[in-house]
């Protein structure tokens, strides 16, 4: 019996080759995600037994428990899951495309662009009493536009008879610094009240989630994730290097643009609703690679679940561990993620 499953459909247009062992691991991760999902829905200011949580999901439970779980906790957990998945998969795609495990949406400036756009939005549409003149619902739109503008500027500024991964990353780093400077400028010149608010957003928090947001984020992320999973073989080929990819008949530049587009859209959606949660895009694919190896057919789904788990846990710790004080999830993804990430890098020497 072969070690791999292969799927081919639509006259070989879409194909996968997945390690059987990896599939079992992905199954476990999916279960883990579900488990944390249920536990997380039960924990908080009013602890609820996980069994009761399950009852609530299936339509039962007391009214109070229903309210807490369905209205307060579930939306933010859902946003955590989708944002985590989106960031992790976007990071995985970028790492494959750039052929370097240190690339991530944070580093090439996409997140910083969204951050600058949000701060600009908060300042442009505030009146003298510091209240917004347009609905806060437009903030995700601003974030998305910021992410998209940066994504494309980075791509076109690094164009010079094609885009090489090295140039893409370096230009991205430069643009990221510029975006941070713009954000700082707006924060320093604007009212301090807004600056503190903007800072929470930049750090990344899912505290303001509602079902409305989930309704936008969920289909967006799911569709993009499906597209990403369908294009894994493209990424696999890209990771072999330009010469090999061209030799294998890939249209490298077009695919690179396409991959960047997918990851920008994924990040744009995630940061729009969850803010600039850092390190998930860097860390999750890295952890996934250690679990299932570097073939993207297994790597992307694995990173997606790891990303979801990471953000859910970060939010869970942030809203439960410090009593009445709520710490943004982004603080934990950075505080736990960054040292762990360094440890991984040093260990893989």
């Amino acid at each position: 019996m072969s070690k791999y499953y292969s799927f081919r459909i639509l006259a070989d247009k879409i194909s996968f080759l997945i390690d059987k062992k990896a599939m079992i691991k992905i199954g476990f991760l999916a279960l883990l995600t579900l488990l944390i999902f249920i536990i997380s829905a039960g924990l908080g200011g009013m602890p609820i037994n996980p069994l009761h949580v399950l009852q609530v999901f299936f339509g039962g439970g007391e009214d109070m428990e229903r309210l807490v779980v369905m209205q307060f906790r579930l939306p933010r957990i859902m946003v955590s899951i989708f944002a985590g998945m989106a960031l992790a998969v976007a990071g995985g795609i970028l790492q494959g495309m750039v052929r370097n495990p240190l690339a991530s949406p944070d580093i090439i400036g996409i997140t910083a662009g969204a951050g600058a756009a949000v701060v600009a939005f908060l300042f442009l549409f505030s009146d003298h009493n510091h209240s917004l003149t347009v609905s806060i619902k437009w903030m995700p739109a601003a974030a998305f536009i910021g992410a998209a503008i940066v994504g494309f500027s980075v791509y076109f500024l690094s164009w010079r008879n094609g885009v090489t991964p090295v140039r893409l990353v370096l230009v991205g780093i430069g643009i990221a610094a510029l975006m941070q400077a713009c954000t700082t400028l707006l924060m320093v010149t604007g009212p301090i009240y807004r600056a503190a608010e903007a800072n929470i957003w930049i750090t990344g928090s899912v505290s303001g989630s509602s079902w409305e947001k989930v309704q936008i984020l969920a289909p967006w992320t799911i569709i993009l994730l499906i597209i990403a999973f369908l294009s894994t073989r493209t990424i696999n080929v890209q990771e072999l290097g330009d010469e090999v990819a061209i030799g294998l008949g890939s249209s490298v530049e077009r695919q690179r643009f396409f991959l960047l587009l997918i990851s920008t859209c994924l990040v744009g959606g995630a940061v729009a609703f969850a803010g600039g949660i850092g390190f998930v895009g860097l860390m999750a694919p890295h952890m996934a690679r250690r679990l299932v190896g570097s073939s993207f057919d297994a790597l992307l789904p694995t990173s997606a679940f790891i990303g979801a788990v990471l953000v859910m846990l970060a939010d869970l710790i942030g809203r439960t561990a410090f009593g009445p004080l709520e710490v943004p999830a982004g603080v934990f993804t950075a505080a736990i993620g960054a040292p762990y990430f360094i440890y991984l890098l040093v260990k893989t020497k």
Binding site: V327, P328, T333
Partner: peptide, 15 residues
């Protein structure tokens, strides 16, 4: 990456 790490941590303290 290190720069991103330290600025996230700084941001965390400030938040």
């Amino acid at each position: 990456a290190i720069s991103a790490m330290f600025s996230s941590l700084t941001q965390g303290i400030l938040v």
